[in-house]
Design a protein around this nucleic acid. Structure first.
Ligand SMILES: [Zn+2]
Ligand SMILES: [Zn+2]
Ligand SMILES: [Zn+2]
Ligand SMILES: [Zn+2]
Lengths: 136, 136
DNA sequence: GCTTGACCCTGTAGTTGCTACAGGGTGCAT
DNA sequence: ATGCACCCTGTAGCAACTACAGGGTCAAGC
């Protein structure tokens, strides 16, 4: 499989595939006589793992650890659990933070009654946190 | 006011203040004989506006537009409203996306029963989106 | 046999919003 | 005069890509 096929098979940008190779997330594949990268099924499933994990929000370093783990099938899977649980907690924290932001923004947007910038409640609210009802 | 005082007054890193000046978000202040930046109240309130807007998640370019608007008090404030409303919608979209992610992650994490990596349901789920119940 | 177009290669620079130096100058107290 | 806190410029780093520039390869069609 050439890089374009792998790209289509996994929905990954070609430049991203080369990037993953450069940072050591994907192993360097064999090359054809013309120096083209030549991938097999193992590459495809490894890249799918990476993309799916990225889609779920894991960082590259987290994925690196998860790949190390799955490369070593006899190891205890506790670390995978820890990484995934920590990530879940981060997502929850991020949601909580965005919800506070959303409520504050909705309050701010709702105050605009039109008119000139000098009288705009939106601009006033952005200039002074004391108009806010939440910490953020 | 020297840059350190402005930094303390607004809770902004000194390097960040210089960065904002470099990208044209804050006007270059006067300098003392020793070439130190010297700020006044107008700078302080402009920087507060910037920081507060950043805390609310606006991008630098959005803040640039908002500042242009507030520099021109006779202009109609409709654009401020549009920027803030668009940003609110983005925050809502991001929350919705993270909620989907959180639910999927919670499902994945909940499936780990311990044991070796070869049998881990977390690693299995990360490798194959077909185990997922949502699009993400 | 020669061109056209799709594909591939390397290497580098750009994105966002900062943050962290390195290597130097200034100002005040002891 | 020497320490220390503070200031200056300029550059490089972070995450995770993305976008070229400038070149090579290969099969199809004329
Ligand atoms: Zn308004
Ligand atoms: Zn606020
Ligand atoms: Zn497990
Ligand atoms: Zn999935």
């Amino acid at each position: 499989m050439k890089i374009g096929e792998l790209s289509r098979a996994t929905g990954t940008n070609i430049e991203t595939i080369r990037y993953y190779e450069r940072i050591g997330l994907l192993p360097a594949p064999d090359r054809t006589a013309a120096n083209y990268r030549s991938y097999g099924d193992a590459h495809r499933s490894r890249l799918s793992f990476v993309r799916h994990s990225r889609d779920l929000g894991f960082t590259i370093e987290e994925i690196r650890s998860l790949l190390d783990l799955s490369d070593d099938p006899a190891r205890d899977c506790g670390e995978a659990d820890r990484i995934a649980t920590a990530h879940l907690e981060q997502v929850e924290a991020k949601i909580a933070q965005l919800v506070v932001l959303r409520d504050e923004l909705a309050r701010i947007v709702g105050r605009c009654r039109g008119g000139v910038a000098a009288d705009c409640r939106v601009i006033e609210a952005l200039g002074d946190h004391r108009h806010c009802e939440s910490q953020h």
